[in-house]
Every structure is written in C-alpha cells, then in structure tokens.
Write a protein that binds this DNA or RNA. Sequence first.
DNA 1: AGGCGTCTTGACGGGTCCTTGACGCCCGCC
DNA 2: GGCGGGCGTCAAGGACCCGTCAAGACGCCT
Lengths: 224, 224
Amino acid sequence: MSRVLVVDDDVQLLRALRITLRAAGHEVVTAPDGTTALREAAAAHPDVVVLDLGLPDLDGTEVLAGLRPWFTGPVLVLSARADSRDKVDALDAGADDYVTKPFDMDELLARLRAVVRRRPDTPGEPVVVTEHFTVDLAARQVTVDGVPVRLTPTEWALLSELVRASGRLVGQRQLLQSVWGPAYETETNYLRVYLAQLRRKLEPDPAHPRYLHTEPGMGYRFTP
Amino acid sequence: MSRVLVVDDDVQLLRALRITLRAAGHEVVTAPDGTTALREAAAAHPDVVVLDLGLPDLDGTEVLAGLRPWFTGPVLVLSARADSRDKVDALDAGADDYVTKPFDMDELLARLRAVVRRRPDTPGEPVVVTEHFTVDLAARQVTVDGVPVRLTPTEWALLSELVRASGRLVGQRQLLQSVWGPAYETETNYLRVYLAQLRRKLEPDPAHPRYLHTEPGMGYRFTP
DNA sequence: AGGCGTCTTGACGGGTCCTTGACGCCCGCC
DNA sequence: GGCGGGCGTCAAGGACCCGTCAAGACGCCT
C-alpha cells in the first residue's frame, strides 16, 4: 500500500509495529535511532514516517526538524509524554498527528490511514499528452493543437476509459460495460460510431488513426 | 486566517471555542446541531470543521457522512468517548483528527493548525481576475467593470464553487450537492436558473457565455 | 401586518445528443 | 473466386437537456 518508516528504540514495539503494518499491507522500513532514521528517510523515500520522540541519540524534535525541510509526506509522532505542551511543540514542528503511548494498535492504524488519505500528492499524471492533443482527466478537458474541444458525455466516458488504460488493449465488452452498462455488452455498433467521432475530433488523419487503434475482433487501444 | 465551522451543542464550550478561535485569527461559524451544521457547511464554505460527535438530533458520524461526499476540507472530531473503537470509526468515516473531551485548548489549536497546514486548497491568490470581472473569494465580493455587484447567497455559493475549480469541469451532481445539499442531486432545474442569473450579472454577453460554459450532460466550467 | 428580496417550481421552445438502421469496404475463410 | 463477418461511415428519428420566463412560496426586515 505505502512505504512506512518506523523510528523507535523499543525493540519490542518495533517488532509489533512491523508485523501489524505488514499485515495492513504496508512496506516497512525501521530505524532504532535518530541518525539512522534521517539516513533511512533519505535512502528509502518513505511515504509516511512514524516517529518516536524518545530516542537514544537525538531528540525527536530534532529528527523532525531534520526531516521537514525536504520530506513532504506525513509524519506521525509517538510519545510517552502526554503533556499538551509537548504535543503543541511537535505538531507545530511539522508533525501531522501525535499519539501518546501506550496506544491502541487499531487506533494507530486508523490515524495512519487518515493521515495518508489526504496525500494523493503525486497521483501519477492526470494529464496525457501526445504530439497532437492532450487529455486532462482531472479537468475533464481535451485540447487539440492547443484549442479546447468539446466532447459529449459518452465520447468522454469512452475516451477516458481508453486513456486510463493507456497502451493496454481494452476489450469491447469491457468498454461497452463501463460506458453504457452491463446490458449493452453486445452493442458493438456503439463502439464503431463513437470511435469514429472521437477520431474525427482528435486524430490528425481520422481515416488512418495514429492513437486510437482498432484490434479487430478484440477491442481498442490508445497508444500515446 | 481561515473560516472554521464549529459544531457543538454545549453552549459553554461553543462560547469558549468561538473566543479562542477568534483570538487565533480565525473566522468562526457555529452550529448547535447536525442539521444546521450541514446547512451551514454548505452555505458558509468553511475551510475546516470542528465537529462534536454528541449532537441532539443526528449522530456525529451521520453528519460526517453527509459532509464528506462534497466537503474536501479537514474535519476535526471532538468526542467525550475515548474508546478507540469510536476513534477508528470516525477516522475511517473521513475525520482528519479525533480529540477526546476534556481537551487542552492549546492542543486543539495546534491540531487545527496541523490539519489545516496540509491543505493548500486555494494556494496563493484567493482572487480571480478576468477581463470583465473579478471574484474575491476571501472578501466574498464580485466586481464587474470595477463596480461591485450584489450576489444572493445561492448565487455566491454556486459561483465560488465554480471559481474554486477554475478551469476544471464541475459535475452538476457535485454542484447541487455542495450548494444545496446532498438531497438535491437531481434538481438540475436550479442549476439552469442560477447559471442564467450569474451570466446575466457577470457575462458581457449572457446569451454567448465566455466564462461560465455549459458542458451538456456533464456540468459547468469556469474558464478565466 | 405589509413589503421586499430570494428561493422554488412549472412550462415551453430550441437545440444537442443518443440511438438505430442501412450501406460499402476490407479481410480472412471456404 | 465467392462469401461472410467485422469495421467505418452516414443520416434521420426521437429522447433528452438546456436556456428562458414568470408566477407562487417563503423568510426577513421595517
């Protein structure tokens, strides 16, 4: 699911966290102290850091300060100290959440989920660019030679389905099902009509498609 | 700094929160129960919601569920229940943080800062300028050719939703949900009526919109 | 209570989009 | 060489959606 760097000097807890996080589908990297934590963070490029404040070498806030200038992902702080002053300091130092030991494992996982959830920071590239046109999935806009082109809802549904599978072949049954619904699996007519419309709007030479290819008997393929 | 919607039925606490948040530089909107909370959230467009789970009318998780489909900002949950099961449920329902009562006010503020920090929702300029009119999201003001224009609350909610998504297409369902609430998803009539009003007030030639474009069957798009 | 502005609701005309059928072409197969 | 299936193209009908207008309902302020 995502790569987690766990920083803690308690070997017992580290073991437990590693097992639990693995079971939850995460990739786990561990560090027993602050210096290795900083090194591992730079080397392993984790998506999220779970950081204990009580470390043998460095103070936890120092680790946080060393992390924050370049690490943009969420940091979840663990600490035995329940004083709200400590919480405020850690949160203002850049922590995204603060959990006091002892903690419930399910709660930690939930907080981890919450903190990771709002981080689709690099959700791949939501815009596909070719030599002749661009498709912006997020903005729902297509431009050909820089000028916006209007697509009808069906045209858009079909195109986005193909673009999302960029390079891969999409079976006609799958296309029909996802655009028109399960009851239209056999209406291959629709595909021919709408593929033609898309080609007319997007392809430089609609008669000889360069991007929207037909695989006879199987389906269609968008090649960037 | 940012607009906070505080939902709590405890008048005492509400007062305290309002004062503290104001002092911290926030704009505060309050709601004493779930239904007004949902209405206020749609009307006031808060940047962040502080939500007590113990409400007189609706269950807090219901409010959360009503909020989440369209409200993208952070939600900080307050609760008297410290059971980690409740925390997990709330966090997985879309809450960004969970604070148990009684809580330290400084800690709440710090958690609020942490949770807001993550949201570069309207990065930089909260004012959109076109050749014919300007929209100031923060000041809630629209000027056409330099003269201020009065917008009704609904008109403003609709316009700000479109302007916030500047360039991106906003589905009619999403618009209806965020302006009128989840129960109005099918009332596409409203969109037609209010889009016409906005065009009449903003567009140089309302019959041929230059900024507020219609994408038939899908939604509307504001293009600067 | 009255008046005003705002929101809701309904109806209508015009335009767009989806559906559907027919036709010709190309290819592989008999 | 003839044949059939799959594909591309075109056009027309009808359903759906949008813009527009106006009247009624509602809440708020005076």
